[in-house]
């Protein structure tokens, strides 16, 4: 399998404070990779660094092309869709407008219209509410909307920051099932950041564990899930 995203010696800073201390990992085309770690480990910062939303040094290559020093909006145009922590919903706009915004960089109007229908098939609840203000949706619905908005880009890589946060367990299962399906059927590579390690390991095929800005563990998701020692010492369950 070819490498889609390659991150080398990534360091990130908030003002004077360093949040990532030389982080390296890679992600192969078509894979579903998870980045696990406790609160404050640097997961969000890693995703933000990939999209150049925080000052960073090191090498980030996407499909062989360096991403450093590009603006966030031009990185998106490479086909990287980022669902940020907190979902980033355009709360004052309608559900459908949120979806249209996801495709704002695309020119193929017919494709956009059919993709909106496809999203409604994935997430029927969004169809019911397509004229409603997005801010009035429930947390789970907003997360669905955020994923759908990201997919409207027809991304090659989707970055998801704690999609399970604040959602009921059943809703999370549903969401993860759809993510798996998107990964398999639409061939979208996914990097999902999670605190909920158990669920993420069930979903992913590869996993990295991050602690205070460094990768401390990596491997096949099944192996990690089955290794009690690793689970106890790194993932706390």
């Amino acid at each position: 399998m070819t490498t889609l995203l390659n991150v080398k010696d990534l360091r990130a800073y908030y003002g004077q404070v360093q949040a990532l201390h030389g982080l390296s990992f890679s992600l192969s085309e078509g894979s579903l990779t998870t980045l696990l770690g406790a609160n404050g480990a640097g997961k969000t910062t890693t995703l933000r660094a990939i999209c150049n939303m925080v000052r960073s040094t090191g090498g980030i290559e996407f499909d062989g092309k360096p991403l450093n020093h590009r603006s966030t909006e031009s990185i998106v145009r490479f086909g990287i869709a980022h669902v940020p922590q907190g979902r980033g919903t355009f709360t004052t706009m309608t559900v459908e407008e949120n979806l249209q915004l996801g495709a704002i960089t695309r020119k193929d109007n017919a494709g956009i219209i059919s993709d909106i229908e496809r999203m409604y098939a994935h997430f029927p609840v969004l169809k019911q509410r397509h004229t409603q203000q997005a801010g009035t949706l429930s947390g789970g619905e907003q997360q669905m909307l955020a994923v759908a908005r990201a997919l409207m880009l027809r991304p090659r890589l989707m970055l998801l920051d704690e999609p399970s946060f604040g959602l009921a367990p059943l809703v999370v299962r549903d969401l993860f099932r759809i993510l798996g399906k998107i990964n398999r059927e639409d061939k979208v590579s996914i990097l999902v950041v999670e605190q909920n390690a158990q669920l993420a390991l069930e979903l992913a095929d590869h996993a990295y564990v991050i602690e205070t800005g460094r990768i401390v563990m990596s491997g096949n998701a099944k192996d990690i899930a089955n290794n009690e020692e690793i689970r106890k010492s790194y993932l706390g369950y």
């Binding site: 603006s71 966030t72 909006e73 998106v76 940020p84 980033g88 355009f90 709360t91 915004l101 704002i104």
Partner: peptide, 14 residues
């Protein structure tokens, strides 16, 4: 979009 949530707007490529 850019006026209401600038960060999300950048993340959709605006």
């Amino acid at each position: 979009a850019a006026a209401s949530v600038p960060e999300s707007a950048r993340l959709v490529g605006i």
